[in-house]
Design a protein around this nucleic acid. Structure first.
Lengths: 336, 336
DNA sequence: GTGAAAGCGCTAACAC
DNA sequence: GTGTTAGCGCTTTCAC
């Protein structure tokens, strides 16, 4: 087995207390002894056992990160930032993937608690209006466990940080209206998903403020064949002059079809979307879209989490971070 | 503080040993007692303290994942798969980001060891021919610590799993040669990086087998202005008829410039690259590129890791996983 | 079947 | 300054 603090004590002809003191940089040890112990530890390749240390201190030095789906590239930057900040405060991060399964999510949270994570950052799996059973979140709240819910509106009364979806959608839409568009289609309708619902609501709000109504053709990108549906729509003589996609990926997927149709972009069709995926700026034309302010979401998240870890009582806070609208060249005035 | 096994023992009027036995599903406890204890634990919301358990068992149930750069989207799928498999075996994953800094990498590995991770998966930061100081890897080897190095050729004699870069590069190149290309440019030269060097070597091998030589114009995509350099090259009358990019991102970044030049693709210029980024198939025309077989890399990695955890001795194994070449429509015969 | 007690490796009073 | 000792919460022999 690995060398322990006892071994060191024996070798150095001293006590475990002294060893502990020098290793954790506490004062009250003679310089000579301290020096000798440091060197000894170095020589024998002593590696402190954090498990034992954590048990003794009743701390874990661990922050748990529970992701709804680990394979979502949108998380990546967030992870990195969280990781860095947390690390700088002396914490490690234990990661768990809920694989879009609420039961796994429950399990993951339980596991985190067993490992005595000192704080939790959760991207919940669900965000439905018809909120299912989410007792695990209620438990967390009742027990005042430090946790912040990220990216979902259903915060169950816990601390939460989300990006606003509504205002940026409205901005995007107003932009189209100002260019002269009157016939705007929306691709991607799943109103049971709150995030999508908010985006759609923002679009409709801007439209109705201008006395217009949304053209929802029930093209839902989760279903196969939706690109063909969109193609059919765009072939009609009364086709829309602009389309709002629920996210960049949809715009990307539709792009080859648009070219096949011989549409000149953006002259013949204006397009806007959400999420600012990496490739969006390289599309031809570059796509006008919205971007989450990840650095701010991260900052708020950590701020809230650490504050809560200090003070488990106190009312839940809820942050909504504004999204940025990035205007590129995928829109133009309609020529009709 | 949370309720402990002692509290349960007291409440149930029994001993900690018995509680421990039923909670860890061991036999040798009366059915009635067992039942009662289970219910009690449930009622009071007992959460086992894994820290204490791990200390007693001298296990950590933790696998460490040390990433060179956590914000690389290419990792994402790998992470997910690793996570899932590891979880299924009853392990948690502790994650660390080296932020492309060798010193942080050293630190991360040290931390993992302090936390008594039972196995390590490392994406090393460096992979240079002029290998710098990598003592931390040597230590791991000397101490027979279970670790597998992923994605880098510099494996320091440790277990390793990498994707082959050479053969797929040759395949890509042969494909261009067979189409009739004789003048092929290579974008992205940094021979000190082993992965890039291998790709370039593969290209050159295929070329020289056909009696051709590579056109390296020293366009290195890390430097600003490289797209303009490429543009200059493509404006020359003796411009190449095909280009091999070191990765998809380069192809993507160059794309708008190609359109501006009025090149018809792929008729006027054939293009191939590496990495099969998500958007590559949606480019117009869809990009011919190579893809790592992530599922196989993952499988090999876990196989090797768990084998090593069982048997710390035994010679290091080294797997090279073949890459897949995905032919799409970004190439054509040159019309000259 | 069940309980007492000795650790696991480390920390932190409390003595000296 | 330095050592002694009693835990931290759990597991596991070893008796009974």
């Amino acid at each position: 087995m690995a060398v322990t603090i006892h071994d060191l004590a024996r070798m150095a002809g001293t006590s475990t207390a002294t060893i502990s003191r020098v290793l954790s940089g506490k004062r009250g040890v003679g310089a000579a002894k301290r020096e000798a112990i440091m060197r000894l530890a170095q020589e024998v390749g002593y590696t402190p056992n954090r498990i034992a240390q954590n048990l003794a201190l009743n701390k874990s030095h661990v922050i748990g990160l529970v992701a709804a789906a680990l394979d979502n590239p949108a998380y990546v930057d967030f992870f990195r930032r969280i990781h860095r900040a947390v690390h700088d405060k002396g914490y490690r991060v234990l990661i768990a993937d809920s694989e879009l399964d609420a039961e796994k999510e429950r399990q993951n949270i339980a596991t985190m608690r067993e490992h005595r994570a000192e704080g939790l950052i959760v991207f919940p799996v669900h965000d439905w209006r018809a909120a299912g059973k989410a007792e695990h979140f209620l438990h967390l709240r009742v027990q005042k466990f430090p946790v912040v819910i990220v990216g979902r509106l259903d915060d169950h009364g816990l601390d939460a940080v989300t990006s606003e979806q509504d205002e940026c959608a409205a901005t995007l839409t107003r932009h189209l209206i100002e260019l002269g568009h009157r016939d705007i289609a929306f691709v991607g309708s799943d109103p049971s998903n709150r995030c999508i619902a908010e985006r759609q609501a923002g679009v409709e709000r801007a439209l109705s403020a201008a006395g217009l109504t949304l053209r929802t053709e029930n093209i839902v990108p989760d279903q196969p064949g939706w690109v063909e549906q969109l193609e059919t729509l765009l072939r009609r003589p009364d086709r829309p002059t602009a389309v709002v996609y629920i996210n960049d990926v949809c715009a990307l997927m539709a792009h080859p079809m648009l070219l096949r149709l011989g549409l000149r972009l953006p002259a013949d069709l204006s397009q806007v979307a959400f999420d600012d995926s990496i490739w969006s700026r390289y599309l031809t034309p570059p796509l006008t879209t919205t971007a989450e302010r990840i650095e701010e979401v991260t900052a708020r998240t950590l701020e809230v989490l650490f504050a809560r870890m200090e003070d488990p009582d106190g009312p839940a806070v809820r942050h909504r971070v504004a999204q940025e609208v990035i205007f590129r060249n995928s829109t133009a005035a309609p020529h009709r």
